[in-house]
Design a protein around this nucleic acid. Structure first.
Lengths: 113, 113
DNA sequence: TACTTTATCAACTATTCAGTTGTGTAGTTG
DNA sequence: CAACTACACAACTGAATAGTTGATAAAGTA
């Protein structure tokens, strides 16, 4: 995919909104917990250590963004990853972070030369 | 690159911070303006229509995050992209958005069937 | 020197939003 | 039915931050 130049304002807004949705530690944690398999809200509360209301709220944000899906079963609700590209984004970011750390490392190592 | 499972909290924090930095329309606009070539603060003000102080502030955030670099020349300062992975992130997000829109489109089209 | 341009810093305002508290609503169980 | 479980909604509080305003600093120019 190639991006138009310049980016239209509305698209910029959409992109920014998307990044803000995943720019929240708790939501990344939830997504990470859902990486292997779907999970109920109560399980996600245990895993993350957050309150039920808080987890529910964040899941709502992720649901509205189309990143996760939900499935009801009895009186439980199971959430699962719908948009797998989220993890590619995280990997890309981690790659960038690693490059930065490597550069810093090279600079620090150079001082002792 | 493959991510560890589960993600350590500190890494989650770093990833989230990174996403928040680019989760701001004005900063995306600035990065978009720098895609082709470096630019001075004043030029970036014209392009974005934002105040000098505001542009300078956002550039400071991007600089601290290691996404852009700066170069002084006379009484001007030129900023340029250092971390090109930013654009891959935007492309990935746009791809996700397009898939969502396509799905919506399919659903809407199905109604009139 | 005095003045202009360019960029940054600092303080303030307004907004956004994460997390909590309290409550409501299904669904299940005794 | 009542009691319980699982989840969501709404209102509130506090913290972070985007954008403005005013002042300061640095470089070039008359």
């Amino acid at each position: 995919m190639s991006l138009p130049q310049p980016l239209p304002d509305q698209l910029i807004e959409l992109i920014a909104r998307r990044f803000r949705v995943i720019g929240e530690p708790m939501r990344i944690k939830l997504l990470d917990s859902l990486r292997e398999r779907e999970a109920s809200v109560s399980v996600l509360c245990e895993v993350t250590g957050a309150s039920q209301q808080n987890v529910s709220k964040h899941l709502g944000v992720l649901l509205e963004a189309g990143i996760v899906g939900r499935r009801k079963e009895g009186n439980q609700v199971f959430y699962s990853i719908v948009d797998e590209s989220i993890f590619r984004l995280c990997e890309e970011v981690c790659g960038g972070l690693q490059r930065q750390v490597a550069e810093l490392n090279a600079i620090v190592a150079g001082v002792g030369r």
